[in-house]
Write a protein that binds this DNA or RNA. Structure first.
Lengths: 117, 117
DNA sequence: CGGAATCCTTCATGATACTG
DNA sequence: CAGTATCATGAAGGATTCCG
């Protein structure tokens, strides 16, 4: 048993790097966004929105901005009218996929336990 | 690109099992609780609380109850005065540890990126 | 089309006091 | 010692409107 020290990094604070990871990929939408981006080269904003019918425009924009700031997602703006913006995973963003798989596999097992009751 | 369907399981809803996992181990305290429980055979409530100086009694109780309901944590009450309650990981609870390690390792890498700026 | 801005609701978390 | 109960607060998420 040891005391927890709390690290501060910019405006972020966490007591272990597990929490740090959860801050980057956690929340209601980020895992799904990353999942969709992982299945294709890139997606336009509208395409991403269509594949997540329940997300609001505000949340999608906000979550994409955070993923971009953390270096997982690339945002490419085409200078044209009407606007066209494409999102894709960065090289670093690809490294989160095994982690998501790990989460998904455990979730599958847990789901089976739920349904076997 | 495919539409998301939303699954409902009891009072829980999720569009993929990644979210399901995050519902079980996410939040501000659960990863840390699981970490501490993984380092020893079992811990009394007070010991756990001492190792997490910033958690309130209410949150610790609440999070432990949820982990217990989801089958990750075992709660053993000794019929004595003053009360003694010991918490430990269940066999199923042990299966979450590789997932937490995966999260921690990625978090370590991400932390290095943060600090190399 | 892909946003930004504003306001509002809900939920997670916290502070405090009390108890068998 | 290991809780419960109650009230308060802040952050996350959502609805709506407007814009280049």
């Amino acid at each position: 048993m040891k005391e927890c020290t709390i690290k501060h990094n910019g405006n972020r604070s966490y007591s272990c790097t597990v929490e740090l990871t959860l801050q980057v990929i956690g929340g209601k939408w980020k895992p799904v966004i990353l999942y969709h981006l992982s299945r294709v080269d890139c997606l336009r904003f509208g395409e991403l929105k269509k594949s997540m019918p329940n997300i609001t425009q505000k949340m999608l924009t906000q979550q994409l901005r955070e993923l971009e700031q953390n270096g997982l997602v690339n945002r490419e703006v085409y200078a044209q009218v009407p606007p066209k913006v494409e999102y894709s995973l960065t090289t670093f963003g690809l490294t989160i996929l095994p982690v998501l798989n790990s989460l998904r596999e455990w979730g599958d097992t847990f789901e089976q336990r739920l349904e076997s009751v």
